[in-house]
Every structure is written in C-alpha cells, then in structure tokens.
Amino acid sequence: MDSLVVLVLCLSCLLLLSLWRQSSGRGKLPPGPTPLPVIGNILQIGIKDISKSLTNLSKVYGPVFTLYFGLKPIVVLHGYEAVKEALIDLGEEFSGRGIFPLAERANRGFGIVFSNGKKWKEIRRFSLMTLRNFGMGKRSIEDRVQEEARCLVEELRKTKASPCDPTFILGCAPCNVICSIIFHKRFDYKDQQFLNLMEKLNENIKILSSPWIQICNNFSPIIDYFPGTHNKLLKNVAFMKSYILEKVKEHQESMDMNNPQDFIDCFLMKMEKEKHNQPSEFTIESLENTAVDLFGAGTETTSTTLRYALLLLLKHPEVTAKVQEEIERVIGRNRSPCMQDRSHMPYTDAVVHEVQRYIDLLPTSLPHAVTCDIKFRNYLIPKGTTILISLTSVLHDNKEFPNPEMFDPHHFLDEGGNFKKSKYFMPFSAGKRICVGEALAGMELFLFLTSILQNFNLKSLVDPKNLDTTPVVNGFASVPPFYQLCFIPV
C-alpha cells in the first residue's frame, strides 16, 4: 500500500510540474494548442506526416506557434517570411542545433551535424575549407563525379535492359564520391566492405524516417530501456565508426604531411598542428563522427533524390523527352556531361530543381535551437528552445509555385524558357546551418541524371499514369515507394 501511495504522489508531482512548466512558459512563447500533461501535443500531431499537421496548425495559430513534445516546448516556423527572418536575418541567433537524443547517444555531441557552439563552428569551418581545397564546386571533385558517372552508366548497362530496382546502384554512385573525398578511394560496386557500408546507410535513412524515431526523440528514456529499431540505428553508426577508425589508422601509418590526399589526411594534419593548443576540438573521436556525418549527409540524401527523380521522369515521359532533346543538342553522344553545360541547359536545370522542390526530401529539416534569449515577432523565446522549420511550407508555397503539388519544371523557367532562380528554393535548409555539401549534391544530381539520360531511355513496367509517387515514409525524410524500371541503351 505504501508503495502505491508513493507512486501516486510521484505521478501527481510530475503532472503538477508539467502543468507549471507549460503555464509559466506560455506567456512568453508564441500561441499554440493546449498541451496535455506529460505528453504535450503529441496526440494532435500525425507522426506519419508531421508536415501536414504543421500546415493545419498554422492555419489556426499563424506562421509562428508553439507545440509541446512531452514536456519540451518547440517553436514552429511556417512559411517563407518566418523562416527567412529566423535563419537568414537572425542567422546567428537561430544557428543552434536542437535536442536530438538519439544523435546524442550516437555521437556524444561530436561531428558537424549535431554539434553546437565553438566545437560546431570550428569543425564546420575546417570541413568547408577542406572540401573547397579539394575542389568542391571546382574541377578536381567534378572529375571524381564524372568518373563515377561513367562507372554508374557501365553498371546500368550490365542490367541488359531487364527490369531492376535502382535503389542499390543509385546509392553506390554518391557513396563512392564521398569515399573518394574521405578515403581517396572508390570501391567496386561488388566489394563486400562497400556493400556493408551501403547497407547500413540505407537502413539508417529508413529507420530515421519512421514514426518510432519521432517518439524516441521526444521521450528519450525509451532509447535506453525499450527495444526497437533505434538500437539497430545505433549499432549501424557504431559499425561505421569502427570502419572509419580502421581507415584512420591506415592513414596514420602512411600519411605524407607534405601531400595530403583526402579529408582524413587533412584532419590528422590539423590534429598535429593543434596538439599544443589544448583542449582542441580536433580529436580522433571528432574525426570519426565528422566522417560519419559526411557519409550520412552525402550519400543517402543524394541517392534518395536520384531514385525519386527517375520515378518522376517515368511518370512524366514528356519531361524526359525534353531533357534528352536538350542533352542531344548541347552535349551530344561523344563526350561526358560537365558542369559548364548546365548554363546552356535551362530546361534540365529546371527539372533538377523541380525534383528537389517537389519531393521535399527533408520536410522539417533537422531541429534548430536559439543560442540566446531572443525577441522574435513580439515573442520571447528562451535560450536553448528547439525550433522546428517547415521546409515544406517554403518549397510548396502556392504563391511562389502555382499548383505546388504538381510536378512542373516551369516553376523554374521564365516566359522565355530561361532558368529562373527562386529564393524559396531551400531543399538544403538556409542560413548558417545550410548543408555543407550543397554544391557537391547539386553537381552530382546534374551529372548523374544527364549521364543516365544521355545513355538510356527509361521504360516503366506499368502505365506511367498508374505510377504512385507518394512517399512511403514522410517523417525525417521523404522516401519514394518501391518501383522497377528498364534502362534501355540509346
């Protein structure tokens, strides 16, 4: 009986604490739906499609509103004006990374994606500088992407125009580009180590996009005490870190300090320079996690976009025909596509942009946080508050993009057929937390897609009208449904 009384008292205290925290903070924060004790607004949000729920709530509470995930307040920004004001106009104040408990377990605050403060700034600055020195957006990395595009075309030829699921092959190409940047090595598509790495990356994007992960991140005790797919994700990350550590040891034994070959060499050189400046942010643990982040951000996002792009091109054969006509006119058949071609191919450029806009790969991006107490639109948001960005509300804005739910390359073309930029184009987020590999991803999408369409016609196994382009999961990332196609050599 005594234990029951204690339990009831504990629960009562928890409920009172929950109510007090919510009521004391709500006077400062933007308005929002009334949260339930302990669980907050979790029942009012469709976990399978958070973005749709945010759109519905914005119609009631406006472009800036507050939700509670458990006891934790989260300020939501919906629509271009609110997102721009926060991420661009007040970029420094909104540059923090929001709480992501599962990532905390995986990387302990290291790396480039989930770190904060001085650690994040130094690692991000170093990573950007190193990638630029190796030619991100310049010639040397373009050579690597072109080489991988040629290998991709050869792998597709091996399908002999038979029906195939493109998931694996389209994942190999961007993964190999990242391998060449980090390890100075590309792998054969049949290499077992490479296959294991690909498998872990593919599993992780599916797990991260599941409703279960949303629950884990908002009720963090689940991570330590409950079984579930989150444990598989943590094991996959541990596998990748151990693999990278092996490569780091190989580099330490063979590195030429006067001739760095890749990202690992550059990081080890930085560690050597910083060894007298303790404590340094440049450690082996930081290198492991930064490399894992580059793999995660640079492989599955690009391969998922490529997979979605081919599905949309199957669905819209008239678009595919126009792209192939432009390829034939500008590039021809006797040389590989290059980035200089893009400025002469406005329709193809528009298609690449429209694919990214339409699929809305990361509907709410990753959570941000404010780095200080900030007054925002007459609300006071306390330091450390998590900020949720609705990228969907920007990419699918119906004023900027008429009929935003329709796939239409003319969203990025003017009346004369010239490519038209849009400030609403934010597939990689915006501001200080914009994806480090934005330029690389854009290069890969253009070169891989043009190389495929230069060499193959795409054949659907069903009537294009019957192809479903609805994402199968739409949590962290929008993942396309399973499909097969035939690559018919031109």
Rank of each mutant, 00 (worst) to 15 (best):
P404R: 02
Y68D: 03
N116G: 06
G296M: 15
N41D: 03
I213M: 15
T450D: 00
H344Y: 07
L268I: 09
Y379T: 03
E354N: 01
P35V: 07
I207M: 11
V237R: 14
H353S: 08
M406C: 15
F239E: 13
N133P: 14
V292W: 12
T392A: 13
K28T: 14
I215T: 03
I182F: 13
N204Y: 08
L234F: 09
E438K: 05
N403R: 12
V8R: 00
Y424G: 06
D143S: 13
L287S: 01
K383C: 08
I50S: 07
E438I: 04
S23G: 13
P30A: 02
K421Y: 11
P346I: 03
V60L: 08
I374R: 03
D49Q: 05
L447D: 02
I223L: 14
I207A: 06
I169D: 05
F114G: 12
L453P: 00
V370L: 09
E122G: 11
S254C: 14
K185E: 10
G296E: 14
D165L: 00
I123R: 06
S162V: 13
S286V: 11
N218L: 13
R342A: 09
T364P: 02
F295D: 00
I213S: 12
N176I: 01
V177N: 00
E250G: 06
F94N: 03
S127P: 06
F487Q: 01
Q261E: 13
S429H: 05
I244P: 00
L77V: 13
L131P: 02
I488E: 15
L170A: 03
V472Y: 08
S478E: 04
S460L: 04
R97V: 05
I182D: 00
L9Q: 01
G332S: 06
G171V: 06
S127M: 07
R21A: 11
G27A: 15
I222T: 06
D262A: 07
E104T: 12
H344F: 12
P166M: 02
V113T: 14
L449P: 00
C10L: 12
D143I: 15
T130R: 12
K315L: 01
K383A: 11
P35Y: 04
V5T: 15
S24F: 09
T320V: 11
T386P: 11
G70C: 05
E155V: 07
S209A: 09
Q193Y: 07
G70T: 06
Y189D: 01
R125H: 13
H410L: 06
P317L: 05
C10T: 15
G475Y: 10
K160E: 10
S365G: 13
E438G: 07
L9R: 00
T229F: 09
L313E: 00
K232G: 04
H368N: 03
L15C: 11
N204V: 10
G109V: 05
I331V: 15
K72M: 06
F226D: 03
E85A: 08
E155K: 01
L71E: 15
G437D: 09
M339N: 10
T386D: 05
G46L: 03
L306D: 00
L16M: 13
Q193V: 14
I182L: 14
E81G: 13
D408R: 04
S3H: 08
Y61K: 02
A238G: 13
V6E: 06
L313A: 04
L366H: 08
N334G: 11
K241M: 02
